[in-house]
């Protein structure tokens, strides 16, 4: 039986800077994961629904516009509403250190700031999966 880690890589909000999201998508693929890439301008509703249909192990979001305090918690809220508690949710982008405690309390497992090596993110996903099958 061949188990693959599946990750949804999404850009919530209106920000169009997707260099980081694309680099991480490629790095996850090269680490043997299956990456579902949803592109720009995703609403939290679209992200959650896609994550559920694709049955991903992890949702990875990137925001550089400063809208993270609104959009990240909204994704967590929707997951909770739908009783989904086994998807690991992580974020990245330009996110001030002082916002991280709030985002973590909302359920975002980890925030990866600028300059994070892709390997750190890959290792984090592998080590923190919420399910084995």
């Amino acid at each position: 039986m061949e188990r693959k880690i599946r990750v949804l890589v999404a850009k919530p909000g209106l920000d169009g800077h997707d260099r980081g999201a694309k680099v991480i998508a490629r790095a996850l693929r090269d680490a043997g994961m299956e990456v579902i890439y949803t592109g720009l301008r995703q609403t939290p509703e679209q992200i959650v629904q896609a994550g559920m249909q694709e049955d991903v192990d992890c949702i990875a979001m990137s925001i550089l516009s400063g809208a993270h305090n609104h959009l990240f918690p909204r994704v967590m809220e929707l997951l909770k509403e739908r009783k989904v508690d086994d998807i690991l949710v992580i974020g990245g982008g330009v996110i001030p250190e002082s916002d991280i405690p709030f985002l973590k309390s909302a359920g975002i497992a980890e925030i990866f700031g600028p300059g994070t090596p892709t390997k750190v993110t890959i290792d984090f996903i592998r080590a923190n999966l919420k399910r084995n099958s």
Binding site: G13, A67, N69
Partner: peptide, 11 residues
């Protein structure tokens, strides 16, 4: 606009 939520005045 609904898509503007969280983005107004940010960048």
């Amino acid at each position: 606009h609904p898509l503007s939520r969280g983005e107004v005045g940010k960048v």
